Amino acid sequence: MNSRVVSLNFGTLLRIAAWLCLAGIAFATLSPIGLRPTTGLSPSIERFVAFAVVGALFGAAYPRYILFAAMIVLGAAVLFELLQVLEPSRHGRLFDASVKLAGGTIGLAAGSIAGRLFRSD
């Protein structure tokens, strides 16, 4: 019984982490360029890794609902790029969206596999 409680709590923590990570990406993507955090890596690597992480979190948090997770992660990648057009200091580009989509897809696959492997039924 305790393992079920721990599993449930871990799943809840994964879902919270996934949504918080997505919110952080939304802030970094949609805020004015001066507020954008940087790591010193190329922006393409930052985009790819950010969406790979959020994809992995959503894939692991929702392994039984991978289509839902994919709609959230990949939809956010496209939506965030489109919304950048509204911020004067930012620009939405097809290349940037494709990097985010690639990272999100790889993250979703890895997270889904991990979520299925470690899920306790």
Results as ranks from 00 to 15, higher is better:
Asn2Tyr: 02
Asn2Gln: 15
Ser3Pro: 12
Ser3Asp: 13
Ser3Lys: 15
Ser3Arg: 15
Arg4Ser: 13
Val6Asn: 06
Ser7Asn: 14
Gly11His: 04
Gly11Pro: 11
Leu14Asp: 14
Ala17Pro: 10
Trp19Gly: 06
Ala23Phe: 05
Gly24Trp: 00
Gly24Ile: 10
Gly24Glu: 01
Phe27Tyr: 14
Ala28Trp: 08
Ala28His: 02
Leu30Asn: 08
Ser31His: 03
Ile33Asn: 10
Leu35Trp: 10
Arg36Tyr: 03
Thr38Gly: 03
Thr39Gln: 10
Gly40Ser: 09
Gly40Pro: 05
Leu41Pro: 07
Ser42Ala: 15
Pro43His: 07
Pro43Asp: 14
Pro43Ile: 03
Ser44Arg: 01
Glu46Gly: 09
Phe48Asp: 07
Val49Arg: 13
Phe51Asp: 01
Phe51Ile: 06
Gly55Trp: 00
Ala56Trp: 00
Leu57Val: 03
Leu57Pro: 12
Leu57Ala: 07
Leu57Glu: 14
Leu57Gln: 10
Phe58Val: 12
Phe58Cys: 04
Ala60Ile: 03
Tyr62Leu: 11
Arg64Leu: 02
Leu67Val: 14
Phe68Arg: 04
Ala69Gly: 13
Ala70Thr: 12
Ala70Ser: 12
Met71Gln: 09
Val73Gln: 09
Gly75Glu: 00
Val78Glu: 01
Leu79Lys: 02
Leu79Gln: 03
Phe80Asn: 00
Leu82Cys: 12
Val85Trp: 01
Leu86Arg: 11
Glu87Thr: 15
Ser89Gly: 08
Ser89Met: 05
Arg90Met: 06
His91Glu: 10
His91Pro: 00
Arg93Asn: 08
Arg93Ile: 01
Arg93His: 14
Val99Leu: 14
Lys100Ala: 01
Leu101Val: 09
Leu101Tyr: 00
Ala102Glu: 00
Gly103Gln: 05
Gly104His: 05
Gly104Phe: 02
Gly107Ser: 14
Ala109Asp: 00
Ala110Ile: 14
Gly111Asn: 15
Gly111Cys: 14
Gly111Asp: 11
Ser112Leu: 11
Ala114His: 03
Ala114Val: 03
Leu117Tyr: 00
Leu117Arg: 05
Arg119Glu: 14
Asp121Gly: 06
